[in-house]
Amino acid sequence: MITLKSSVSDEIHKQLAIELFNFTWDLIEKPDRNETEDETMVNAAHASRFHWDMVGTAQHFATGEWQISRVYSLVGRPEPALFHAQKSLALCQNNQLGDFNTGFAYEALARAYATQGDTKQRDENIALANRSAEKVDKESDRVWLLKNVNTIASLSLPIWEGN
């Protein structure tokens, strides 16, 4: 966590982190985004991660890095997508965040490599994501992770059906 001298309360940082994460997710799912919305999506993902820096945990940091990577993959920018996916994976591994989170970090890496056109690295990370998914106890989490992994080769996104 970073200490920032500010009049912004922890509760406001948390509220902004959540709202910006959800706003980013709405843009991720928007099928007909324009260039301005793509830029807004990138900025909102970074802003959410910034606010988590003020009040979050390693879990929030890893998820934020994963979302930033997803956004960069969507806009066709593999280098920052890889950078943030690697940060997500390191946070998962260094903080023992479990197979679900680690699986999504591998999913982000695979998606970033797919965006780059590196099928060898894509497939290696898909295999690692699948291995992580096999170890996820909660069925709905395992299914959601696998739905995401199964869309990497097509660079599409799964449809959220809720729990």
Results as ranks from 00 to 15, higher is better:
A127C: 05
Q96F: 13
D123L: 08
Y113T: 02
C92M: 03
D141C: 09
S88R: 00
F100M: 09
S140I: 15
V136W: 11
N150F: 08
L91H: 03
G117K: 09
Q121E: 12
F83Q: 13
V136F: 12
K87E: 09
I159H: 15
K87Q: 04
C92G: 07
S88A: 03
E139K: 12
G98W: 04
A153Q: 14
R142E: 14
F83E: 12
D141K: 14
T102F: 05
E79L: 12
L91A: 05
W144P: 08
N101T: 04
L146G: 10
Y106N: 01
F100L: 13
V149T: 12
L155Y: 09
D123E: 14
Q96P: 01
A133Q: 03
Q96R: 08
N125M: 06
R131V: 09
V143A: 14
G98C: 07
W160F: 13
D99C: 07
N125E: 04
E134F: 09
L145P: 13
A133G: 11
W160T: 11
T115G: 03
S88M: 00
G103W: 01
T119I: 12
R77S: 12
S73C: 00
N130Y: 08
V75D: 00
C92W: 05
L97D: 02
G103C: 03
A112F: 03
N150W: 08
G98S: 07
T151C: 14
F104E: 14
L91M: 04
L74D: 03
T151Q: 15
S73H: 00
G117T: 10
N148W: 11
L109V: 08
R70W: 04
L146I: 15
L157P: 08
V143G: 10
S154V: 13
S73V: 00
S88K: 00
